[in-house]
Amino acid sequence: MIQKQLETENRLQARRVNYKKSWRKYVFLLSFLGFILIFSMILANSIGPVPIPFQQTIAIMLDALHIEQGLDYIERDAIVVMDIRLPRVIVGALVGGALGTAGAIMQGLFRNPLVEPGYIGVSSGAALAAVMVLFFGLVKYSLWILPGAAFLGALISMGIVLAVWEMSRKTSVSTLLLVGLGLNLFVSAVISVFVASAPSEQELRSIVFWLQGGLEGPTWQHVQLISPFILAAIVGVCFFARELNMMLLGDDQAKSSGVNVRRTRYILLGLSALMTGTGVAVSGTIGFVGLVVPHVIRLLFGADHRFLLPASALGGAAFLVLADTVSRMAFERVHLQVGVVCALIGAPIFLMLVLRSKRGSV
């Protein structure tokens, strides 16, 4: 009896030690990703047609936070950083964080590492609404019509997908994925009709540029518009990390562990749609961030959503900021959209992941 009690206490003590070690590792890795994000944001603010030294960029940003420092800088550099580059960088970080977190949610819900937020029709719905606004020239009435319409289109498309899923009376997530893919195909066809019948070259170029995804022209108003929704949604999904971990084992196992699978799934899908729709509304359709970033983090550090969700947010933010920096500087003579750069980087990685999963299943 005493021997069994000692063995039980030893096992509990070993679990406590392993738990502390894992959390120390997670804190270190999150701190490292946070450092990469901060470094990439400072780098993006320093690089451009008007180069600004690293130290002066840091001084300008610290001065904006009312933190005293002894470095001097000229007023022109402060205007370039604070009024032109920093809003674009912050919007890129917010959109990247939203797409990375939404991708981690989708891959956890569908138990498929090759799924991204656009598969359930959110991005395509936002794209269709934005294309319609550009096609009919409604942007001239207000700058907020385009992001507002895109956000509304994302919510409507998500509602349609969930409604059709409910009417199908099939609760499997694979059915939800098929409904989303079907809506994507239909919306893509409708967008092609608008593109083919664009009234002028100007509308056509606006539509194509928006569909490629970009971070041109964001202001502090855009930052104020999207930051509350995206940050609140990211914090909200982190409270469901335990439920997502349970749902990876299957719906039956999750229910036996006390998880309300239906309610949790709808909440996570809603928060994912909110993040994706808000991000797409100001940046256009940007792919592969929500696919590649959470999958790579999962391969390197495991599938515990307590770490995976915040790590995907930080990793997605850093990835998109760096991709936007590449799009601005790598091809100076060509106006290359950040969505194109993400596709150039993400597509080869996606093919590698597919080949890796094929070999693993053989």
Score class of each variant (00 low, 15 high):
residue 3 Q to R: 14
residue 8 T to L: 14
residue 8 T to R: 13
residue 10 N to P: 01
residue 15 R to P: 01
residue 20 K to R: 15
residue 21 K to I: 13
residue 23 W to A: 05
residue 27 V to I: 09
residue 29 L to R: 06
residue 37 L to C: 01
residue 39 F to A: 15
residue 41 M to V: 09
residue 41 M to T: 11
residue 43 L to Y: 12
residue 48 G to I: 08
residue 51 P to Y: 02
residue 53 P to I: 12
residue 54 F to R: 12
residue 54 F to P: 01
residue 57 T to P: 12
residue 60 I to P: 12
residue 64 A to P: 03
residue 69 Q to L: 07
residue 71 L to T: 15
residue 71 L to D: 06
residue 74 I to W: 02
residue 76 R to F: 09
residue 78 A to F: 02
residue 81 V to W: 03
residue 81 V to D: 05
residue 82 M to D: 02
residue 88 R to F: 08
residue 89 V to N: 03
residue 97 G to L: 00
residue 97 G to C: 00
residue 97 G to T: 01
residue 102 A to G: 13
residue 106 M to A: 02
residue 111 R to I: 05
residue 113 P to W: 02
residue 113 P to I: 01
residue 114 L to Y: 07
residue 116 E to G: 06
residue 119 Y to P: 04
residue 120 I to F: 06
residue 121 G to N: 09
residue 131 V to S: 06
residue 133 V to C: 12
residue 135 F to S: 11
residue 137 G to V: 08
residue 143 L to E: 08
residue 145 I to Y: 09
residue 146 L to N: 03
residue 148 G to P: 06
residue 149 A to P: 06
residue 150 A to L: 04
residue 151 F to Q: 02
residue 155 L to I: 14
residue 158 M to C: 09
residue 160 I to C: 10
residue 162 L to W: 00
residue 163 A to H: 14
residue 166 E to S: 11
residue 169 R to C: 04
residue 175 T to Y: 01
residue 176 L to Y: 01
residue 179 V to T: 11
residue 179 V to D: 04
residue 181 L to C: 09
residue 183 L to M: 15
residue 184 N to Q: 09
residue 189 A to P: 05
residue 190 V to M: 14
residue 192 S to L: 10
residue 196 A to V: 08
residue 204 L to N: 02
residue 205 R to K: 14
residue 208 V to E: 11
residue 220 W to A: 09
residue 229 F to Y: 11
residue 231 L to N: 01
residue 237 V to Y: 01
residue 243 E to Q: 15
residue 253 Q to P: 00
residue 257 S to H: 07
residue 259 V to T: 14
residue 261 V to K: 03
residue 273 A to W: 01
residue 277 G to F: 06
residue 282 V to R: 02
residue 288 F to P: 13
residue 288 F to Y: 15
residue 289 V to K: 05
residue 298 R to C: 00
residue 302 G to W: 05
residue 303 A to M: 00
residue 307 F to W: 13
residue 310 P to W: 03
residue 313 A to Q: 05
residue 316 G to F: 03
residue 325 T to R: 03
residue 328 R to K: 14
residue 337 Q to S: 14
residue 338 V to C: 08
residue 343 A to Q: 06
residue 343 A to T: 10
residue 344 L to K: 12
residue 351 L to P: 11
residue 352 M to A: 13
residue 358 K to Q: 11
residue 359 R to N: 10
residue 359 R to G: 04
residue 361 S to W: 08
